[in-house]
Design a binder for these strands. Sequence first.
RNA 1: GUGGACGUAGCUCAGCAGGUAGAGCCCCGGGUUGUGGCCUCGGUGGUCGUGGGUUCAAAUCCCAUCGUCCACCCCA
Length: 425
Amino acid sequence: MTQALRPVRGFNDILPPASVHWQRLENEAAAVLEQAGYGEIRLPVVESTDLFARSIGASSDIVEKEMYSFPDRQGHSLSLRPEATAGCVRAGITQGLFDGGQLRLWYRGPMFRHERPQKGRYRQFHQIGAEAFGMTGAGIEAELIALAARLWKRIGLNGVTLKINTLGSFEDRKRYRAALLDFLHRHEDSLDDDSRRRLGSNPLRILDSKVAATRELLENAPRIVDSLGSASAAHFDELRRQLDALGIAYVCDPFLVRGLDYYTGSVFEWVTDALGAQDAICSGGRYDGLVEELGGRRTPAAGWALGMERLVLLAESQAVFPAPSGPDAYLVALGEAPELRALALAEALRDRLPRLRLIVNADGGSLKAQMRRADKCGARFAIILGESELANGAVTVKPLLEKQEQLAVAQDVLADFLAQRIQAA
RNA sequence: GUGGACGUAGCUCAGCAGGUAGAGCCCCGGGUUGUGGCCUCGGUGGUCGUGGGUUCAAAUCCCAUCGUCCACCCCA
């Protein structure tokens, strides 16, 4: 393990076979989202720091101490995006996307937060997110939740539970915040240090404290539900009815809050107990005020983001992925003239059979060495091309996985031969 | 940012009352001059994370530092 050259802490290489799992999950997610009419938006990785301060919240932990911020050559402060909703909204405003009514978008890509690395938590991590704009009814939250549920189903994931809650309208939240603060101030001396610190900055976050004593105290704290105006309460009831109709199980968690300031109304989170402390794999909610807050026209919105690293980890732990299979064939060539013929033959085969997975031996080697390589990569057939085959216009095809005799196949019917065998597999 | 555990070959790990490195797997080659997997024989590969200290002598002891993992924290 060389010391001199290392990746930056918290920044990881993703190699096969893990990268194959990533591809599979990304493809499934893309399919699920595209099927429901979400279009992919590709956003910059860098935005002005100001954007995140105004959306996520200047006093949030993310903005306060986790962003990769740096001045550009003109002295403007830029930041690597810690999440993508802000950028998505910024793009929507600057590109005029919110002037056309309803809009469904999804994105994927790396995000950056300077946290202490841990299992399921890295400084560069990847999210797939879905955002829906211009819809006020609870139906869009139900749709978003159903999309995530569909994705879990498609990849065969079990053991994720959905938690939902509502933060209420802006006014509800303000009223609740006051009630909660009042309660917490009265019990300030029994709060832990972190929670006491949050009294001044983000009191709602105290609700998901892990400190036992604090949790106990919170049992008697005022609940958001009791501060809800009739419209908010009706909206939340509607969401629950829709989830019931969809057959999606959930638990109402009055302590579920979000770390980002822009959320209002419904919030939700999919959690697992298989990932240790980093248990949230997908979460989101409604953020009706954000577009206007950033200078756009008043536009209701909701969305979620899932953490790819966590999803991959969870899926791998549940053995959701099929065992990797080797290529269909490995082309063995012996000597200079057969090697030249092999190059052309491989091209012809790939033209004829676009789905054929074929490795051509490189760097020569004895027949034994080449056969070993063919075996090692898990190829189904070794296709041998030596001087004698060359003279006959044929190849020798040897099955490597099944106990069958090898046989001579004419080069001009090799593609048909392989097509048949591969389809049969 | 805080606390704890741990860093020895590409991988998994042994060696740690201090005497200057080992195994298994992998990889390469021979046994079979054109036939893989099994077997067998041989071979490549490590400044023992890094820097300092103690000592005649340090992978083994001490300090620092970097990294990994776990928890706090944060959150996807």
